[in-house]
Structures are given as C-alpha cells and as structure tokens.
Design a binder for these strands. Structure first.
Lengths: 329, 329
DNA sequence: CTGAAAGCGCTTACAG
DNA sequence: CTGAAAGCGCTTACAG
C-alpha cells in the first residue's frame, strides 16, 4: 500500500516527456527569464499532468538552506499553543516550515539539554525558537545555538540574558493596581509568588498612591495563608494575585468563607487563561499578548536569519499586557 | 555574524584529513562491518575533533526517507498540546522529527485545505497526523493524503471515516451517570450539545436504571435555558454537562441562584480542562486520555509507516475516559 | 578490509 | 532562447 506510492515527478521526467532540457523546464516553470512560448506551454501542461512539485529536500541540499525553523517547547498550556500558532503562521507566510521538540525532563529526571540540542542542530534548521517553561539549561542552549551559527529567539523567558520577545509584566501589574485605586479600593494587597517584576509593578503603583504595600508571598497558595491577610485591620478590599491559577484558588477560599467578590474584596488575576472567563465571578485579569509575542518573535527571527543588523536597542522587545475587566474587580 | 557560520564537517572532510576513503570513514563511524583498528581510531578522533554530524538532508535525498512526520493542528488548547507532546516524544524515540502546520481559516474565511495539504505534501513527510478541531475538509484531506501515498492518523476526530485514535465518549458518560446513581442521585439530567455519542451514553445508562431521560440541548449555554430544567418537579439533583466550559457556566448560574453544589445539585463536566480542578467547587469531570491518544497515535502511525499489515479490527482504536471525582459530584 | 563511482533532484554558473 | 555539466553530502552496490 504505502510502498506502492507512485513515484513523484521530477524535473527530469518533465524534460524527457517534453523533449527539452531540464534547464528549460525550470525556466518555463519559474516564469522568470525568457522561454519560447511553445516550450513554456508544453512544459506547464506536462508538469500539471504529472503533478510536479519541487523536491524540497533536493533543493535544501543544493542551496544549503533547509527553510526550516526549529521550536523547542516546554510547558503545555493554551497560552504557549497560541504563541506557537502565531509563530508558525508568520513563518509559513515567509516560506519556512516549523518543526517542534519538547524539551522537558523525562521520568529519569535527566537533563534533556544535550539530547534536545543535538536533535535540533542535526536537523540543520535556519533558526531556532525557545518557548517558555523549558527544563533546559538555557545558558548552555544559547551558547550551543550560537556556536552552531543559528539565529535564535526566546519567547517570554524569565532569564536575564539572550534575545527575547518578552512581556511587560511590571507595567501590567502597575496598571492593574491603579485601576483598583480608581475603582475606589482602599486597601490593596499582593498575593502570590515572589516574581520580582510583578512585585516591582505593585510597589511602584502603591508608592505613587502613597499607600503602604501589603505583600503575602505564597507560591503554593496554601489556603491557610490567606488568613493573616484577612485578619488585617482594615481588611484588604482588593487583591492582586500573581497568576490566574492562584486567583481561582483564592476565589474558592473567599467563597468558602462567605466573602463576596467583588463587593467585599476585588480580585485580579494574571495570564488570562481561557477558562478564567468562566469562573464565578468571571475573573478580571491581565492578558498576555500571546499572538503578538508569537508573531513578533517570528518577525524578528526572520530578520536575524536574513542577516539584518540588530536595531539600536538590540533584538529584544517587550510587549504590553492588557487589563481584561470582567466581574471580579 | 550568522553568515560567518563555520562550515560543518562532512564525511569527505574526515576522509581527506585521515587519508582513508569516504567509504572507510563511514564504516568506522558506523561501527558495523570490519575496519582496521587503526583506521577506526584515527577516524573517530578526527570526527570528534571536527564535530561531525551526518547531514540529514543529504541522507534524506539519498535514501528517499525524510524521517519527518507532519502534524496538522486545529484548536488551540492544552488538551491538544498534551497530545502533541506525547506524539512528538514517541516519534522522536523512533528517530523522526515532527513539523507542524496550523490548519484553520484565516480572516478571509477561505478554505485552508488546499494550502495546508500542498505544504504538507511538498515537505515530503513519511506520515501525517491530523489533530482535532480542524477547519479542513477532512474527506478531501484524507483522500489527498492517501493519493500521495502517505500513511496518516487522525487524533480524536468526530468524523465517521478514516483511521483514528478516538475516545470512548459514550462509555465515559455512561459510567458517570451510573456513578451519580450510586451516589444516591434520583433525578439525573443531561445539559449541553447534541453530540450523539454523549447522549447515547446518557440514554443507555438511564434505560438501565429504569429512569426517564431528561435532556436539554443547549450548545450556547444561554443561562436562561437552565430555567426549564430547574422548574421541573421534582427538580433534577444531578447534571451531566457536555463540556467543562459549559459546566463552569452552569456552576456560575447555580451560584447566582443560590443553589448549593453538590448538596442540591451535583454537576459533572467533560474534558478535564486543566483549570477545572480549581473551580468552586472543584469540578468532577470525565478526563480525556490525552497522553495515551498522542502516544498511541504515534505508535500506530509508526506501524503504518513501517508497512505493517493492519490488525484484524483495522488501525482505529478508541481509548477509555477516566472519571475524575472532585467536589462537584 | 578498503576504494572508486553512481545517483537522489535540485540550482547555478558557463557556453553557445 | 537553450543545453551540458558540476556538485550539495550522503548511501549503496560493485570490485578488488
């Protein structure tokens, strides 16, 4: 069955069938350069009939350009899949194909960096993208990638180095806090991980508002840790939480205690996970510009692959977040 | 910079450096066949020093085997990304690379089938996978894929034809209804889309229980449509909802009306979306075996690509769902 | 145990 | 306007 696959037509097949040279077939098909009308007509007719498609592998070998880009994926979430889609669609427009590799620890817990990079480099892509949430040693990954002469781009990485399309987290939280203040909230607290950029945004806004910051670091969102916050006098009437996942846990805790959201306490999340629009009440949150991150990363990578000089500020960019106001704040 | 990429070493480079023929280099590197110890030693040393990696493009051209598999992706969700990861990891073990293409309508609304298939076929993969939620004309897609002699596999497709790794939805819902009955629920209703397989499972279980089915078809989950259900005498004390997204909307509606979940009404969702574990109350739901679907699809595709004969029942398989009991039922 | 050579299907100077 | 030929880096009979 599969082995019966009829042989695909090559330029030579068309040349033999039409009686002209392979060189002429190419020019006729390409449309560039001059060809006699008669040759062109016969060639296109035969190519059509034989269902000719150029063999990309042969072309890649000859030109040294595989027209492939490799993406290393980490975390599984619709956020990253949205970035991936925008990234792939932009690359496809430019004639590139995207192959993917998941770079995470397997059961054994062994560092996958070597294996993933070997695979990546061996496939000889023209560029590489590293998505977020990877289990890789990124310093080594970037070094290896550059050593192999491969242009690369990071999408939304936390690390401090490398060319990255990032997100303005600090600014996002800063604006959310101001929104809460404008909505009349008096006592605004921060709850969640100790991610520096989020805290910076929170602290900057609170300083501008002339208010004392109230920060509870609690990466696990252990319900018990909400207690000290709720025991404060006056009790906070607004919470900026460091992620949507955590915010949903907080909502459940507030419901358990019979505290009304947003009447008694307003809650703002972070990420805009798809399902948070359906929580009760619907979560107000900071949306990551996933499509923009994907598309911009493709754009910049295309530029690097094209040999462009980096712009004055370097290749990195940081894109703004968007406050999505729903019901919880 | 990128253009400065040092040339990669080829077999010929190693041959010249060591003074043996290219043929000998290959045998020494491969380890198969016999080679003089001396030749093997020198060759491996030089290969190591030059950082030799076989050029996969050249190999593909020569052998006619690209060692690539193409995946066409549709819906963006962590469910599909989980399938994709399992699929890719299994293929990678077997030496294949996976490239991806998103097949969905663009703004213009034009049918993407042609464009996506052209890209796919042109890349000359050795196999193809179609993921769920595609905007493609699948009948044409399968026909074209087979016409090109490409083994393919569908992952969790609703269509009635084609080789597919599917999910036993009917059985999943059937078991959920029995679980509700065992938990002492008297009046169990179905709410959601008119998907036949889910309804079949619901109706089969209800028939076995000797109870009258109560079905409200409401794909949009318009809140108002919950009214007739809640007005029934006796009022349902359990709801099987057709998806987690819909179930979350239902939860919010019940909260709005002050109806306690699960005390007054139990709710079971469908899909096990990541964030439903965090709803209030945490949603009991039917989990899709995403990793298994991905891995099994890879396994079967590998088998098809290897030219195996189809098993007696055909290539298709349907995998069981798992009831994840949390708080809502 | 080893070498010389053909060929996968393109693209690209080079000649006429 | 067209043709003959080289070569990308492999793999694979074929000879010795």
């Amino acid at each position: 069955m599969a082995s019966e696959s009829s042989k695909v037509a090559s330029l030579r097949d068309i040349a033999e069938e039409t009686g002209v040279s392979i060189r002429t077939v190419r020019r006729a098909l390409e449309g560039t350069g001059s060809t006699s009308a008669e040759a062109r007509e016969r060639v296109t007719e035969v190519a059509e009939r034989l269902g000719y498609r150029p063999n990309l592998v042969a072309r890649a070998l000859r030109t040294g350009r595989t027209m492939e880009v490799g993406a290393v994926l980490g975390e599984v979430s619709e956020l990253h899949m949205t970035k991936l889609r925008a990234f792939e669609e932009r690359l496809r427009e430019a004639g590139y194909s995207l192959f993917v590799l998941f770079g995470r620890r397997d059961r054994s817990g062994a560092d996958p960096t070597r294996q993933v990079l070997d695979r990546l480099v061996q496939r000889a892509p023209m560029g590489v993208a590293f998505f977020g949430g990877l289990d890789l040693d990124m310093t080594e990954a970037i070094r290896e990638t550059e050593a192999a002469g491969l242009p690369y781009m990071l999408l939304d990485h936390r690390g401090e180095s490398g060319d990255v399309i990032g997100i303005r987290r600090e600014e996002g939280v800063y604006e959310a806090i101001h929104y809460l203040a404008r909505s009349g909230r008096r006592t605004i607290a921060y709850f969640g991980t100790d991610d520096r950029t989020r805290l910076d945004g929170y602290e900057r806004a609170m300083a501008e508002l002339g208010r004392e910051p109230i920060i509870v670091i609690n990466p696990e969102a252990d319900p018990a840790d909400l207690e000290p916050l709720l025991a404060l006098q006056p009790r906070p009437d607004a919470l900026q939480v460091s992620s949507d996942v955590l915010a949903l846990k907080v909502l459940a805790q507030l419901h358990e205690r019979g505290i009304a959201v947003p009447r008694e306490i307003a809650v703002i999340g972070f990420d805009d996970r798809e399902l948070t629009a359906l929580s009760w009440p619907a979560l107000t949150t900071l949306a990551q510009p996933n499509r923009d991150v994907g598309r911009t990363a493709a754009e910049v990578l295309l530029s690097k692959m094209g040999g462009d000089e980096p712009p004055a500020g370097g290749w990195s960019q940081r894109l703004p977040m968007r406050l999505v106001v729903r019901e919880s704040a």
